[in-house]
Amino acid sequence: MDHRPQAWGRPRDDIYGAYDASYLQTSGPKTATQSPVVTGTSVIAIKFKDGIVMAADNLASYGSLARFTDVKRLRTFLDTSVVGFGGDVSDMQFLDRHLKELAIDEAYEHNDDQQQQDDDDSHHKSTPGTALNAANLHKYLQKLMYRRRNDFDPLWNQILVGGLDAARKPFLASVDLRGTAFTSPSLATGFGAALAQPIMRRYAATDEDAARLTREQAVDVVKECMKVLFYRDARSLDRYSIAVVTKDGVELSEDEQLERQSWAFAERIRGYGTQTV
């Protein structure tokens, strides 16, 4: 037996072979990088004439286990923007708390202005140059995510931000765990990038196309995409949240059920080739 303290708590060399001490190495880069544990899948969104529609299902998975089925992944900001989260749920909650504090900071400075403008023009909640709009919020989140990735401690999320920009035009953009940002007439994270994005592009390939879409059309396209995702994404759920953002604010519904699914054709499927009974 080896009684040296160095050998305490370690498998015996004579039985298990030499101990691999490489993990004890203290030099080298700091690796705070984590991997996600409790995760949400896709978020999808599309612009339309007066705003944007965003949706995400209510599932938080634990590996392949569908562990939490009532997790709302769309969050509103100042009732003018909506943020959709894919990826790690604990990091989503961190960002949610962070954004809540940001909204309180906004109320310090803008509460009074905003109130004034509410009175002047009851339809326009935030006016350019005052409270943070969706474009500002997206830029802020991009900087935050990029900074965290440079700290080698990324927030493990893919995020969509929807709302209106400074010119009060529909705004939609994404940012991921590396701080990479995109904007497009339609956007999807995770599996949705492969499955939903091609469908949404059929309706809104360009901003001009999107500007011709009505709210009803946009909602229908998004609901259709949620159905396709439920059919083909093994980490998805048939209960979902959907948000519509226009100049009148955010309408968020957090307990939608997928409707009009198509399964009856299974009856015609017999065997896997030549079998007919």
């Binding site: 991997s35 590996g63 392949s64 286990l65």
Partner: peptide, 25 residues
């Protein structure tokens, strides 16, 4: 740390807890 360094989730997600334990713990 014994968490593995692939950065990817164990596909057999239901045993995540046990994979995370340090040796001999």
């Amino acid at each position: 740390m014994e968490f593995g360094n692939s950065g990817s989730l164990s596909e057999d997600g239901i045993h995540l807890d046990m994979d995370r334990l340090k040796k001999g713990e």
